[in-house]
Every structure is written in C-alpha cells, then in structure tokens.
Amino acid sequence: MTNALRLYMHYLGQSIRSQMQYRASFIMLSFGQLLITGIEFLAIASLFARFKHIQGWTLPEVAFLYGLINISFAFADAASRGFDMFGTMVKSGDFDRLLLRPRSTALQLAGYELTLRRIGRLIQGLIVFSWASYTLDIAWSVPKIYLVFIAIFGGACLFIGLMIIQATIAFWTTESLELMNTMTYGGVETAQYPLPIYRIWFRKFFTYIIPLACVNYLPSLAILERGDPMGLPVILQWVAPLICIIFLIVALQIWKIGVRHYRSTGS
C-alpha cells in the first residue's frame, strides 16, 4: 500500500514535469477554464438578480453549494484523466501495455496524468466558495471545517467513481459513452442547486443511487444550519460524504469486471 502510494506520487511528479514542458499552453488553458466557469456562475447570479431566491435559498447559499461541488469536481477531473483517455487506449491497444506491468491497472491509470489545467475550475470554485462563506457569515467550528473537508473528499471520490464506471463501459463499446457525462458534468450542474427544487424520483436517484446529495446538499444543510425539508436524520448530514468512499470501492470492483472481460475477449 505505501509502495503503491509512493509509485503514485512518482507518477504524479513526472506528469507535472511533462506538463511544465508546455508552460504557455498550461497557463492559457487554466485561464480559459477559469473564465468559462466564471461566466457560468455569472449566469446563475443574474438569475437571482431577477428571482431573489429559489425555494428559500438565496444567491450566497446557492453559491456555497456551487463552490463546494466545483472544488470536488476540479480535483476529481484532474486526477481521473487516465480514465477519461481510456477509450482511445483500448482502441489503440495501449491498454495491453498496462497489463504487462506488475501493478494494478487502476493504479496505473490513476497515475497517467494529474491534469494541472483543472486548476482554473479549482480557483473559480474556491473564489465562489469563499465569497459565499464570507457573505453568509458562517459560524465556523472544528466540526464544520471537518465537514467541508470530507464533503470535498467524498465529492472527489464520487466523481472519480463515476469516471471509472464510464471508462469501464469502454471495455464493451470501445468508446466512452457520452451518456455518462450526464452523470459527471450533469451531476455538477444538478448539485449547484438545492435538491428540493427537483422532482422526487430525481432527488432519490441523486441521493441513493448516485449519492450526489451526500457530498453537497446534506453537509451544506449542517454547515448553513438549515432544516431538511426531506426529513432525513440530522446525523446523516455529518457522515453522508463518507458513503462516497464506498461508492468508489464499488466502482473499482466494476472496473475489475471490465478488465476480466477484456482479458477474455481481447477487445
């Protein structure tokens, strides 16, 4: 385990070094992403300029949800580039190379690249999150700070899990399905708004099947000290993000099934 971590760090170090060979491109792409996601938030803000609040949620509160999910997603997106590229790797036969090395394929793909330009989204998420926290005048305490960290961590686990599942599908289709983007990018968009604005089945889907609410909406209720109109136990708000670790473990098991399928069909 420590050995795997060491190798992962080595991979990441090399990935950063090779990206730094194209420094100008890194700076421009990061800045571009900062702008694009920034405009996205301005669109939400302009909506609130007209409607003031959505189901009792004000702009700073929604900004809190928005910042939190975008920070999680930026980390996940940077860390899971290997899985994102996976469809082309299967097609070109490069995946065979990973099977020739005495390490798990998931570890090797995780170490494929740490995509630094995602820092654009990360910075934007941090700015929005900080602005929201400042405006809402949140009474920060140790448990609340802990909750922010596990919410971000759980969110990153959830999105990485989704991207692993998306990559796994490529074992059968040899192309990563765009359909899964509705879970990842769509998930980010969904989580930017408070859950009760959605229909019941949609809420349930994003709570119990894809536990998106567990890393964003539920912990935010605890931090913002709002009541839960869905009436789930309060304790859940404090531990829900950890469920996503299980989600990631399940995703890795599904990945293993995919690898087994690949090795018996060779395609």
């Binding site: 065979d96 099977l99 020739l100 018996s264 060779g266």
Partner: peptide, 9 residues
C-alpha cells in the same frame, strides 16, 4: 504472445 504474457485468457 498475449496469452503467454498474461494479457489474454
């Protein structure tokens, strides 16, 4: 070669 190198079952 793929079978002998453990890639294929």
């Amino acid at each position: 070669v793929k079978v002998l190198s453990g890639i294929l079952v």
